[in-house]
Design a protein around this nucleic acid. Structure first.
Lengths: 215, 215
DNA sequence: GAGAAAATTTGCCTAGTCAGCAAAAATCTA
DNA sequence: TAGATTTTTGCTGACTAGGCAAATTTTCTC
């Protein structure tokens, strides 16, 4: 599927997403109209609607892409690998692009992203698209664990827990000062999920030698 | 806070929520305008906007109320109680009203709700409001576990995992045929979360005597 | 209770969004 | 290159979101 048509479509989609992000970080999404995004991407406003049903969706589309990516990675992990190891690798994958791991984002980028992602409308849209993509992740989990996504709660529980935990880690990463690297946060979130989110208070009480603070 | 003013406000809010649900179940939310809801509730369209910023929000408001309720219950559980027991009780509470536990909803209500809740716009709005209310739950978790919701991932992880797991259980309950009672589904979801969502395949392999199927 | 203060409802209004339709343009197939 | 398919686009109409100020209702103070 690498015809000119498909490539142009992808390019348009990318251009719209990039324009939306750029403009939103510059002026705040409330001060950006669909028309502005379309213009910046060099297409008509009507074409914008063909790709995204709102400007929030255009921004949140990155989440969809990342979730799809994770699902693909999960399917590709060796079948014998323990589930939670595979899941952790899968959720890390979309964030392991070179730029992001080698250097933290500039403070002003952080600030802009923080503003953007904390807007209620934006959070909502992010969650919506995340969950529209979670079926794919759930299917991969079902396949790997021999469960049935029609009859069993299990794959859905894992998929949604994993997605929101990752989201929580990312949000934490944007908020916390001073800046910390993202990947360990995601790993930690997965580890906590996989161990049943044990009450750190109870753990400390029953095992006074424990040193590790919950992160 | 039981002045006439406050009571009227609550009544208006309830009326709008009820009207929205009623009309949406009758004709589908796409065929209901804000104007219709306002009329059915006996207020002006402009007043609708004072309460809710969209018709989806009016429907999803039940989720907010339930989450608030759960947070309150969690705060009220005895301090010595293990976290996951308290959390489970808290999440069950809003669903334990008399009608719902004694008899399952009529098939046509189930069908209507299924349609309603599966609309993407509706799912998105549900998630948005659920997560705008999750701070309260996270705060209750932080208090109970001696963690800091600014510095630690933990309370956010628990709150979002618990909320989405409950949501998954509810969705499952609406979808599965034949109808099953809701409360055990929620309990099971919490139990799985608290035990780290163990891979049922691995469990079965390493312990061939195990009989329980993951639900 | 009467009148002042505060909160709520309402109508009016503007800017903006969303998607159906059909014509035009671009791309693919053979 | 001709014809089929897909995508883009302009036009349009129904609907929405929320600012503002006037009118109404409730609460507060004496």
């Amino acid at each position: 599927m690498t015809g000119l048509r498909a490539r142009k479509k992808q390019a348009t989609r990318d251009a719209l997403m990039a324009a939306a992000l750029q403009l939103a970080m510059e002026r705040g999404l409330d001060n950006v109209r669909v028309e502005d995004i379309a213009e910046a991407a060099g297409v008509s406003p009507r074409t914008f609607s063909n790709y995204f049903s709102s400007k929030w969706e255009a921004l949140a589309a990155r989440h969809v892409d990342r979730t799809r990516h994770s699902a693909q990675v999960l399917r590709d992990r060796p079948p014998g690998e323990p589930l939670w190891e595979a899941v952790t690798r899968a959720m890390l994958a979309p964030w392991q692009s070179a730029e992001r791991t080698t250097q933290p984002p500039a403070p002003e980028v952080r600030a802009a992203l923080r503003l953007l992602t904390s807007a209620p409308a934006m959070e909502g849209e992010s969650l919506r698209v995340l969950f529209s993509a979670d079926a794919e992740l759930a299917a991969a989990v079902a396949e790997r664990t021999g469960t049935d996504h029609e009859r069993d709660l299990y794959p859905q529980l894992v998929a949604t827990a994993v997605i929101t935990a990752t989201q929580t880690a990312v949000r934490h990463w944007l908020l916390v000062e001073p800046a910390v690297p993202l990947l360990p946060l995601i790993e930690e979130a997965m580890r906590q999920l996989a161990t049943g989110l044990p009450d750190p208070l109870a753990t400390r009480l029953s095992d006074p030698t424990a040193q590790g603070e919950p992160q």
